[in-house]
Design a protein around this nucleic acid. Structure first.
Lengths: 219, 219
DNA sequence: ATTACTAACGTTCGAGTAT
DNA sequence: TATACTCGAACGTTAGTAA
């Protein structure tokens, strides 16, 4: 069955915002996001339109697409499957304020040993730097809860005789934008957490030191 | 990318229980479930083993597989994607007791007009019959909540001049087993709900009239 | 009964390119 | 700029069958 192609692209379109409204897309960008050529992405868009999973319309030289109710049902089913697999998984909210970093985050993120695992296990290319968030006191016991929850393990490694320890990662959102929380297993701090993402979060949300942010961690 | 094949099969294996333990599988059954031949399923299992997503071991003439932590991460990512798409979707619990049906459910389910849509939009072949559940009084206001929530629409149709109305469907579980709740749009009853599934639920859970069941509806 | 190899067959891919 | 067509090459599929 080639249904899986259709699912993959449908999911990507949903993530690009085509769920409830017509969204302008570029077949080359879509192709890049799902790992195929512009030509293939274009072809699949046509196939999916014929199958009634999306609506497509020309928009000047571009196209706009919108997921149909049938397409939505396809996605819903997959979502249901994952709910069956993982149960009703926990979500933990944290609030805190942005803190000046020490530039260390950038140093670590750039290490090939971590970078590679971030791409492999968190599925994004990290912006080279971390956002440090000081969690407000009344949320700090939740940090402990997170540490004890299910995590994604980024293995430690050695480089030029220097050891880099194992790091725990968690899928998360910062102000609703997809990101990840990373916690070195050796770290002591319980009130400061580090966030990585595929963009510079400081710029995306115009964050200054002291800005309040909302984190949601998905265990 | 053929990653989507891997995802699809990994999800299926997870649904078959390979997430946390070695599970005996049959490549022919797996193939049927994902819509490919026994030979292809066998080949993909080998590929996924090489890629470190599952562990495989011979078990007599059969094989046993177990999803690795890397495989789990793949699934987790997809689950996270769906959480981004649908937000933290609601789940509603109902409790009630099994009720004698009037044989009507069977009559409706067997109508090609509904059957086809069940396979297309709910993704299972329905057992020909419905399980009627009388919801306990203190759960009845939740039935209203469900009716007003997001539903999957099974369109009405006409057959030999007789009209069959539109039906609302919801993904659900009965005693944790995947099923669907169906509600004819015209129906009056608010205290009795009808459940369909791919198996005879009465037999699966050895239900008699009056047996208590737990329903979870995923809106 | 299984799983899994081989070989012939289809499908899908993407470079080139028209629009 | 875009999207989307053609077509030869690459890849995935399955029937047959060995183990």
């Amino acid at each position: 069955m080639n249904d899986c192609r259709v699912f993959m692209i449908l999911k990507e379109l949903a993530l690009m915002g085509s769920m409830n409204r017509y969204t302008m897309i570029h077949t080359s960008e879509l192709g890049k996001r799902v790992g195929m050529s512009q030509q293939s992405a274009s072809r699949w868009i046509s196939i999916m339109e014929k199958r009634g999973l999306i609506e497509k319309e020309k928009y000047g030289r571009n196209i706009r697409v919108k997921i149909t109710s049938l397409g939505r049902v396809y996605l819903k089913k997959a979502h249901f499957d994952f709910t069956m697999i993982f149960g009703d998984s926990r979500r933990v909210e944290l609030r805190g304020e942005v803190m000046k970093g020490l530039g260390e985050g950038r140093y670590y993120i750039m290490k090939e040993g971590y970078r590679k695992q971030i791409e492999e296990k968190l599925f994004f290319e990290p912006f080279p730097g971390t956002l440090n968030v000081r969690v407000y006191p009344n949320y700090r016991k939740r940090v402990k809860e997170i540490r004890e929850g299910e995590f994604i393990s980024l293995d430690g490694f050695e480089e030029n005789g220097r050891k880099f320890g194992r790091v725990r990662a968690y899928f998360a959102t910062l102000n609703s934008y997809p990101a990840a929380l990373i916690v070195p297993e050796m770290s002591q701090y319980r009130d400061v957490v580090e966030i990585i993402s595929d963009v510079k979060l400081r710029d995306k949300f115009d964050l200054k030191d002291g800005s309040e942010v909302l984190l949601v961690i998905y265990l």
